[in-house]
């Protein structure tokens, strides 16, 4: 992938071009750059030294109606937002908010201590604390010399 085009005599710039290309090719993006369809509820994910922090905007949900489960590296959020019950004839002059039941599952980025996941909900913002498991630290694997003609 060449991004700069210079004249033939610009040898020094060609070097720069090659260096930039190499840098760009060497970059790896941790998050896929292709955006998928917008999902509900919107989620942000942060990393802290001791934990991952997931936040989500869920205005109008009662904490009792929020169901969180975590198993095998998958965090599932489930909830329901009730429609207003006192509208006359169910007629709305404006209807821009979303109601109804929803569910969303997220793959947790690394190994976490699933039994220590905790969540709090305040002002319509859900915060889920996912403590990192100690085994996510790099672990040295010893290589044992084996017999090449041994059993497979």
């Amino acid at each position: 992938m060449a991004i700069f085009r210079w004249g033939d005599s610009w040898e020094t710039f060609r070097d720069l071009e090659r260096q930039v290309d190499r840098l760009l090719n060497g970059l790896t993006f941790p998050i896929p750059l292709i955006r998928v369809e917008r999902q509900y509820p919107p989620i942000n994910l942060y990393e802290l030294p001791e934990e991952y922090l997931l936040t989500s905007e869920l205005p109008g949900i009662e904490p009792a109606e929020l169901d969180l489960t975590v198993a095998n590296g998958i965090l599932t959020l489930r909830g329901k937002r009730a429609a207003p019950t006192n509208a006359i004839d169910d007629q709305f002059r404006r209807h821009e908010r979303i109601w109804g039941a929803w569910e969303r599952s997220i793959a947790v980025p690394e190994r976490i201590r699933e039994d220590e996941v905790r969540a709090d909900f305040q002002n319509g913002i859900l915060k889920v604390h996912l403590p990192k498991a100690p085994e996510t630290r790099p672990r040295q694997i010893q290589v044992i010399a084996g017999n090449v003609e041994g059993e497979m």
Binding site: G60, N86, I88, N123
Partner: peptide, 22 residues
């Protein structure tokens, strides 16, 4: 913010989603 506006027996009701606001 997104809003709902409707008539109720008490009058007009306006609901607005303001996540994170206290």
């Amino acid at each position: 913010p997104p809003v709902d506006i409707y008539d109720s027996p008490e009058g007009l009701v306006l609901l607005a989603d303001l996540p994170g606001v206290s």
